[in-house]
């Protein structure tokens, strides 16, 4: 078998690497030059509001004070907003509630979306029609979806009617008036609206899994589940990370549908971070405080997401 050994010399492989690196280097420089103006613009758009927010968060400024935001230094109060925030129980419970919604909704959307995507990999009668129907929830304006679910979950509404029909009992749950069921209703609405996005992204991921490798695994005797676990999932890792990241970030900001359904109520039972911020802004008009909340959320969320992504990437390399 000696002659099967690696060829004595493969100069082309080496040259390929070097050539590639050189070209990439050139390309990078040119690319940077070309995108420079756009980068400056983006930097300005992204960084300026951030700095402004930081500035305001260190003051007690409100638009009602009659001075421009740039003059907010007159109302300087240092880190008072931040220390207040640490003691703000309504803030902390809103944060906890947001996390709870996210921890239930995102995995549910992921699993449902993945399941549907797997179904759609095979052919079945009416696939195209179902496919179109699947995408409808994404196209519905969130506010409209909010009203729709508001109607559905009325105590005399269709949801109770269906439950009555199924169970044979007269169900009349006041969904949106009870703290627990209100939260459930809100989560159902979110899952309904965002599962299709998961489905779409994951379907794209599934289509991208090399068919030959799946076939090779089949021929080696792997069962469906073994193939799924050892070939399909690892190949989809990147796209799964992207899908989850998008939904985690989006879900953390859950607002419009929810606000229309419950207004954050009953009481503060469905008050998420976004709703809380909105209420503070609209009702109390303490923008310095709002800026502090927003900044804390932004920073913690970006730390969370980048941690998650870098960990996933590290695992991938290992």
């Amino acid at each position: 078998m000696t002659s099967l050994a690696t060829p004595e010399k493969m100069p082309m492989a080496d040259a390929a690497l070097k050539d590639g690196a050189a070209a990439a280097d050139d390309g990078r420089r040119l690319g940077f030059a070309l995108t420079m103006p756009a980068q400056v613009l983006v930097l300005f758009i992204a960084v300026f509001p951030l700095l402004m927010q930081l500035y305001i968060s260190l003051t007690d400024w409100s638009p009602l004070d009659g001075i421009g935001w740039w003059q907010a230094y007159e109302l300087w109060n240092g880190f008072a907003n931040y220390t207040d925030l640490m003691a703000d129980t309504r803030f902390w419970s809103a944060l906890g509630r947001t996390a709870l919604v996210m921890l239930i909704c995102v995995p549910a959307e992921f699993l449902l979306g993945l399941g549907l995507a797997i179904l759609f990999m095979d052919d079945f009668v009416g696939k195209r029609v179902f496919y179109s129907i699947m995408l409808v929830p994404m196209m519905v304006v969130p506010a409209v979806a909010g009203y729709m679910f508001f109607m559905l979950f009325q105590s005399g509404g269709p949801v109770n009617d269906i439950l009555s029909g199924v169970t044979g009992m007269n169900v009349s749950i006041a969904w949106l008036s009870d703290p627990t069921t209100a939260l459930i209703a809100v989560m159902i609405a979110d899952i309904w609206q965002w599962t299709p996005l998961m489905f779409l992204i994951l379907l794209a991921g599934l289509v991208g899994v090399p068919e030959d490798q799946v076939r090779a695994a089949t021929l080696l005797g792997a069962s469906w589940w073994q193939r799924f676990r050892t070939i399909v999932l690892p190949k989809m890792k990147t796209i799964i990370i992207i899908a989850l990241a998008i939904r985690v970030i989006e879900n953390f900001k859950i607002f419009d549908t929810l606000y229309i359904m419950t207004g954050g109520g009953p009481g503060v039972a469905t008050e998420t971070i976004s709703v809380y911020i909105y209420k503070v802004t609209q009702q109390d008009l303490i923008w310095g405080y709002v800026a502090a909340i927003a900044l804390v959320i932004l920073i913690s969320l970006s730390i969370l997401v980048s941690l998650a992504i870098s960990r996933m990437n590290k695992k991938k390399e290992a």
Binding site: P210, D212, Q213, R215, A216, A217, T218, L219, L220, I231
Partner: peptide, 28 residues
């Protein structure tokens, strides 16, 4: 196809690119 006792070498080899050489060999 998994139960025919057939070994198949694909034109593009269909190596599991997310695994190392050992794991590829051990797969079956």
């Amino acid at each position: 196809m998994g139960r025919r006792g057939v070994g198949f070498v694909f034109q593009n080899y269909a190596i599991f690119t997310h695994m190392n050489v050992y794991d590829n060999l051990a797969y079956g």
